[in-house]
Design a binder for these strands. Structure first.
Lengths: 249, 249
DNA sequence: TCAACCATCATTGTATACGCATTGTAGGAT
DNA sequence: ATCCTACAATGCGTATACAATGATGGTTGA
């Protein structure tokens, strides 16, 4: 967190008397900050359980608490951060059942989308996807784990967007973001999400227009990812005393 | 809406000079207000396009603008209200493509959930669902259209919850809420969402544990609803000038 | 020496004040 | 008479101030 603080302070110290330009870029500024935090979570620079104090974010991004709270609420609704009533915000630590739910949902939606994607995909889309897969492979090779995770999620989301159904695509995007958190909690160290060649194979099937093959491949793909995790209820934080000692509160 | 206003006023008028009791019930109060607005939208007491001025809501619910804005943001993320940058909040008017997306999503998710629901459903669940269906039929019979719409959405959401997948259930809940808006915009006057006996038939299949029959029935059920709509792009509000006249800004 | 209680601190929840943008209206000029 | 311009009002965006609560550490009494 410190390096960000320094970085931003250095960039922002150059005269900003007070009350910057209102709305002119306000919305975009919020969007940028939202993406910064969101990316940091997805890239696992902010691990699950990390506290996000409003004051700290305020001075890091040079914005008022009002704006930060707005952003944190959005992140909370997307289940990337957890807002506990008097304790502030922290990066969500998905429970085991949440993890299973997320992967079951991805199974249903992403697989179900493949036929439509195969039907609608264009040459241009194919080359774009290949480019994304290539960048992801490179990131994996050079050991940029954070980048690889983000690119993998982006690949799956882009795939869903090609179905033309914006609602389902947005839902898949959320599921992919949450998957990054799940990988951070339940994944083994060396092995991260998608195998490097899997995405390329999937693109081949889609380019051939074989929706059914793509669907079954996506099914195996997601099953493999989930199988590589050890989704066990590890009560590390907040040991749920009420649950352990049966005495109801 | 008036009775709600009186209710809240009546509860709060009892001596609270200013700055009411802070958090004691703050979160719950927000939840109550959120449900009030959400229900009013789902029941179509607030039609698509209706403006939701922050000041008005402030005095109706006797809460500060901060709280209202928080609630409006949540509703916006759930796509029930639209927040235009300087113009405030209004009830979302779904576009035709959004309507198609929502029903395609419901088709995929709700149908896909049926087998699991059939597997997990208990006697108690069955009787609860029958009770809900009965209340819905009664509301339809007595002409309480608003109530019937809300109960129908609640039925579909409860059904999804029985799958045990909280993530997908929440998603279905959002889709059902948005469906109410879609019915309001694209539905014909006399004919509202679900046929009265459809839900009862569906419960029968689930009680028998026949997930496949339930799935195909849900498929037909949703197809019928969508077919009863006239989803045509009627550009009434906000004609997207940039899109019409190609000149970029 | 240990435990319990009190005080202070840290951090969030809520409300309000201030400024700007947009819109509607009125007045004047052509 | 019509059109353009300027001003006023309405309403939202942002920041900040204040209140409350949970936490932590210190002090005192047994």
């Amino acid at each position: 967190m410190e390096q960000k603080n320094n970085l931003v302070d250095g960039a922002e110290n150059k005269a900003r008397p007070r009350r910057l330009g209102k709305n002119g870029d306000g919305t975009e500024r919020h969007e940028v900050i939202y993406r910064s935090i969101s990316d940091a979570i997805i890239e696992q620079q902010l691990r699950p359980g990390a506290r996000l104090r409003e004051d700290a974010l305020t001075e890091v991004f040079n914005i008022s608490r009002t704006g930060i709270r707005k952003i944190l609420q959005r992140l909370a609704l997307e289940q990337l951060v957890t807002l506990t009533p008097r304790r502030g915000a922290s990066v969500t630590r998905p429970t085991a059942s949440e993890a299973r739910d997320v992967f079951a949902a991805r199974q249903m939606v992403e697989c179900g989308l493949m036929p439509e994607v195969a039907r609608r995909i264009t040459e241009q889309d194919v080359s774009e996807l290949r480019e994304m897969a290539k960048r992801e492979r490179e990131a994996l090779k050079t050991g940029e784990q954070s980048t690889a995770i983000k690119l993998s999620a982006a690949f799956h989301e882009r795939l869903a967007q090609l179905s033309g159904n914006a609602t389902l695509a947005a839902f898949v995007g959320q599921l992919c973001s949450r998957s990054s958190l799940i990988l951070a909690v339940y994944g083994s160290a060396g092995h991260l999400g998608c195998e490097s060649h899997d995405h390329d194979d999937l693109i081949d099937y889609l380019a051939e227009g074989d929706g059914e093959k793509a669907r079954t491949f996506m099914n195996h793909h997601l099953k493999e990812i989930e199988a590589s995790l050890s989704i066990i209820e590890e009560e590390a934080v907040a040991p749920d005393l009420h649950q352990i000692f049966g005495m109801n509160s």
